[in-house]
């Protein structure tokens, strides 16, 4: 993974996970799950605007905005009974917050493999997070090209 492209917030989250024992990593993931922001009203009432993330086992929907200053805003929703997926979404939403299009597109696609969760959560489940990141980047690319 190319360290120089990793945004500071994502690097910080990774370091926080790696500093913990396996079991504590699950607790931190749960904290992320619990702090996933609610959708803003304009999306909460318009599920049709959201894209479904097929790589996740639970119904996850996301929407990406690129504002006039080329700053990316990520909105994700996942049900309460899918805390792992909520945790993944929350990590990405927090880690990508306030970044530019260029910075988001430069995030290495294998970031989810590097945050020390493959053992605690299993590689199979981590693929859901990679799918989420890939779709965010694709939407960002599409929307910034428009």
């Amino acid at each position: 993974m190319s360290e120089r492209h990793l945004p500071e917030a994502l690097a910080g989250i990774r370091d926080d996970f790696l500093a913990l024992e396996q079991n504590e990593r699950l607790q931190l993931l749960l904290e992320f799950a619990n702090s996933l922001p609610e959708l803003p009203e304009r999306y909460a009432n318009h599920p049709d605007l959201l894209e479904r993330v097929e790589e996740c086992q639970s119904p996850v929907f996301l929407f990406v905005e690129v504002d006039d200053a080329d700053i990316v805003h990520v909105f994700v929703t996942a049900p309460r009974e899918a805390p792992t997926t909520r945790g993944f979404a929350s990590i990405l939403a927090e880690g990508l917050k306030g970044l530019t299009v260029e910075q988001v597109l430069a995030v290495p696609p294998d970031y989810p493999l590097t945050i020390g969760l493959t053992e605690a959560v299993s590689p199979l489940r981590i693929r859901g997070m990679m799918g989420l990141l890939g779709r965010i980047q694709r939407q960002v690319a599409e929307k910034s090209a428009a």
């Binding site: 699950l26 607790q27 993931l29 749960l30 799950a33 086992q57 639970s58 309460r80 009974e81 899918a82 805390p83 792992t84 997926t85 945790g87 605690a120 959560v121 299993s122 489940r125």
Partner: peptide
């Protein structure tokens, strides 16, 4: 569970 964190909730 399918979800590895559900028990923790």
């Amino acid at each position: 569970d399918e979800d590895v964190l559900l028990y923790e909730t």
